[in-house]
Amino acid sequence: MDSVASDISDVSDVPDVSEAAESSHRQTLRSTADNGLKIVIVGGFGVGKTTLVRSVSEIRPLNTEETMTQAGEHIDDTGGVAAKKATTVAFDFGRISLDARNVLYLFGAPGQERFWFLWDRLFAGTLGAVVLVDTRRLSDSWYAVDRLEHHGTPFVVACNDFGGPAHTPDQIREALDLADEVPLVFCDARSRESGKQVLISLVEHLRTLVTSAPRSIPQPIPQTVPEPML
């Protein structure tokens, strides 16, 4: 991993993404922007998702939510929508303008069980995911690792440094039951350079997968998506 480096951008055609962005609600994208991409950062409460998004984003992280009925329920036709039990999940996101056309959105998503009902609706077509873990609470990440494997979503695991006792990569791999090919990196979510390296490690992993993929790529199994609750 790179040592902490200067944040000064040497790319002249990228809009100003300095701390000035902190104070404005949002900056506008260039009019040529036409391809939104997504990477999802999954992890338990307090693991540093928002911090990581903030470190690399050109906008202050924004918050939004999605509301769905529970799987197996449906909106009845008698207007009784208010009576339905809803699943509401909140997530935050940031943004990185990569070039004139490509814009990368980073989503910070809670790894808890109910969130996965919304995965397809929100994150279909994601490039991949970062599972952000706190080595003091590795078991919080089991569920996320499991679901991503089940979904066939490529991911890397990033250990956020909270200054706890050091763990070796092998200890962490064993605790998470990680497949050998899943990259494991260490980071400090507060550092822009470190956050950037996490994203780069994911994209390099994706490139390896694409390069080595067999010609006939199995398609994801279509999932039944619960109806939105309105």
Binding site: S9, D10, V11, V14, L37, V56, I96, S97, L98, D99, N102, L104, L127, R192, K196, L199, I200, V203, E204, L206, R207, V210
Partner: peptide
């Protein structure tokens, strides 16, 4: 992916 990498590396 190459475009994403170029963009990220130049952050």
């Amino acid at each position: 992916l190459e475009q994403v990498l170029v963009g990220l590396r130049s952050l």
